[in-house]
Design a protein around this nucleic acid. Sequence first.
DNA 1: GGTGAAAAAGAAAACGTTTACATTTTATCC
DNA 2: GGATAAAATGTAAACGTTTTCTTTTTCACC
Lengths: 344, 344
Amino acid sequence: MKQVSIKQVAELAGVSIATVSRCLNEPSRVREKTRLRVQDAIVRTGYEPNTLARNFRRGRTNLIMVVLPSVGDPFFTEVLQGIRSVVDAEGYSLIISETQFNTMNADEVGAMLVTRQADGVILLASVFPFGGEVLTRAKRRGQPIVIGCETLSAALADFPSVHIDNIRAAREATEHLLGLGHRRIAFVTAGAGSPLTRDREEGYREAMAAAGETVRPGWVVEGGLSLEGAIRATGDLLTHPERPTAVFCGNDEMALGAMHAIHQDGLNIPGDLSVMGFDDIRYAATASPTLSTIAQPAREIGRRVARRMLNAIDGGPDASARRGEPEIVPHRLVLRNSVAPPPD
Amino acid sequence: MKQVSIKQVAELAGVSIATVSRCLNEPSRVREKTRLRVQDAIVRTGYEPNTLARNFRRGRTNLIMVVLPSVGDPFFTEVLQGIRSVVDAEGYSLIISETQFNTMNADEVGAMLVTRQADGVILLASVFPFGGEVLTRAKRRGQPIVIGCETLSAALADFPSVHIDNIRAAREATEHLLGLGHRRIAFVTAGAGSPLTRDREEGYREAMAAAGETVRPGWVVEGGLSLEGAIRATGDLLTHPERPTAVFCGNDEMALGAMHAIHQDGLNIPGDLSVMGFDDIRYAATASPTLSTIAQPAREIGRRVARRMLNAIDGGPDASARRGEPEIVPHRLVLRNSVAPPPD
DNA sequence: GGTGAAAAAGAAAACGTTTACATTTTATCC
DNA sequence: GGATAAAATGTAAACGTTTTCTTTTTCACC
């Protein structure tokens, strides 16, 4: 009942194991006659290559690890599909790890980086816990690491990355709201630990400052990137003495939560309050009212990240260590029905 | 620049490689004095175990593959999180493969099953393309396979599984609509290839038949499990000469699409039409109006599936080959605001 | 048909662990 | 302190490939 190995195939075919191996890996280098004999032996013995031995010998697994905040987030899963569409064709599978919004699973990522179980790691989420040590070690060893979506923290600045200009996008969205006449604009951020919305908040503050509007204390609330968090945060917002007329959310997930909280309070969108999201997940277009937001080219980001990863893997240490210029992809302001001029 | 191996550690510590290995794997079996010496040598050399060699030698990867229709589906990602919560603690990582709603990636799953890159495979999606061959082969070899959510097709009947009673759940939901006075009830199914909604459709038809209602041609439409598909399908439904007063959708994703289509037509939910979903994804509770649906205990399903998988892996061929009684977990009808008595 | 080069096949090492078995050291008991 | 058991360590094989280096075979050419 033991697994049949290359050896038994060789025996049955009357060739050496080297020839069998060559039949599998570079069939062109073996004569047709023997190749057929080996093929036959493979079928007759029911041989299946032992991937673990192969991986070991080759020093690679054809596995790429992807670290993201949560598989539940429709935006990141779309990026993921972009990644998959590229790496699939090259025979790679994906190991997926979640940081659960920075309740970081430091062990798993660290271990994966360290142990080379994966040929490379794509970071779609900030992995601050390691900032320094693990990543520099990985870099020294020439392990491919590519960053997507996430803005670069100092520790990650040396790795190739693909993302939109988050600051500018948030500024534009805020300017749009200001242009409609809104002055009391709130911002729902992820929270202290997350650099994801930090840049977006920065863009928001820049636009407010440029328009001469002050951001009142209590207008920037933490939604933790989640539906529930945003519902709570928006609830707070609605009790603010200077209630905002517009709520700009760090991502669409939170925007949907905000909309729910506003509806619960019996208020109308966009009549009483406007809501602006960020990401353009697919539910944004079908929400009621439909959600205005910033569209990121999620799939395209995924594809580009994936290509850089494949380059890094193929190119060896050099390619991966090469300081990649961050690739900035275009965003787009998508205007739907959740935004209108303020009441009065 | 070569990787430092156990050998150099042994040399520096003045012990044999076996002792180093033991320090790593069963430290209790080595004297403290030498253990410290080895520890020191490990640090000094910067040694890191070669996972690929270890996997090869041990014959396992600590990887579990999960096959699901799409990572974009909030229901399955919640199941996924349940799975993760269990296997994480045991040191397993997850390889995730998508069938893209039955545009099956037969190669990847088949290959993974065959090559033992993963220690086991959890199927949350139907994998009909293999029905026979690959799965029986996997079974013969004692490879752990566990099925979740999916109803069992004949080919899979021998594997352990965890799911709700889809037929009964759908019947109950339909009965609820009937009870409110609806007679013209439509059903949005996934499509021909998907056994996922097949049982649900069956439950719907049973309930209709039991109530003496006939299901008119054109009342059962295909939404392909997706938002867009459901929008289209529901659009068709609304032009039906005998327009339904209630739409029961095979999953919440499609229900959200249906709601959007209905709103687009200027109709009111639940005033003009009631909408019922299935799954209770988190967006169901925040949709506008909030969506009535069948709640599946997604996380719990994930946890149970994961536990069975771990058992199968640990228990060896025996445990996994053992015909598992399907575990039926309870569902729950969740009534929210998208359902009301029919107009008139 | 003999020569040489090219192509095909074989022999054996190597990859870095784990582990069965053998050996040495330590501890225990009288 | 010596016999014995137990604990600690060492030796070496094994895991199934891939790959380097040789050796053999084939083929084309004169």
